[in-house]
């Protein structure tokens, strides 16, 4: 495979009608979940906050990370949405993939948002 062909090969994975969309959003959610839990555990183990309030280093770090992930979901969902509206002559399978992918990106975003809400109200290491 030439360099250009390889690049094309990799790029096609990110097309909104590629079946990787079935798992991409939720794989990102899984990564977010693991990082949140691991960061909290390691943060509390090695850098415990001095006070038991939400004003500490761990909470903003977790929130910032969540914000980045939400941004990523927004981009992915927007891409799928635009593709489903503008792409011509999509096959049954492609339409199915784009729509399922779009819904899964949005639901993954929702799951991320719901999971991050407790960070706003709970002290991290108590």
């Amino acid at each position: 495979m030439t360099g250009q062909a390889a690049e094309q090969g990799i790029k096609r994975f990110f097309r909104p009608d590629h079946p990787v969309q079935f798992v991409l959003g939720l794989a990102i959610w899984s990564l977010w979940f693991v990082v949140m839990y691991a960061a909290l555990s390691v943060g509390c183990g090695f850098f415990p906050p001095v006070t038991e309030t939400v004003f500490n280093l761990i909470t903003p770090t977790l929130l910032l990370f969540t914000l980045l992930i939400m941004l990523l979901f927004t981009v992915l969902a927007l891409r799928s949405w635009r593709y489903s509206r503008h792409a011509q002559n999509l096959s049954h399978m492609q339409r199915f993939t784009v729509r399922v992918g779009l819904a899964l990106h949005l639901l993954a975003a929702l799951a991320t948002l719901a999971g991050a809400l407790p960070v706003l109200v709970l002290s991290p290491c108590v």
Binding site: L40, L122, S123, C125
Partner: peptide, 8 residues
Amino acid sequence: IPQLAQAF
């Protein structure tokens, strides 16, 4: 386990 982790 810390309450925030439980909340996740």
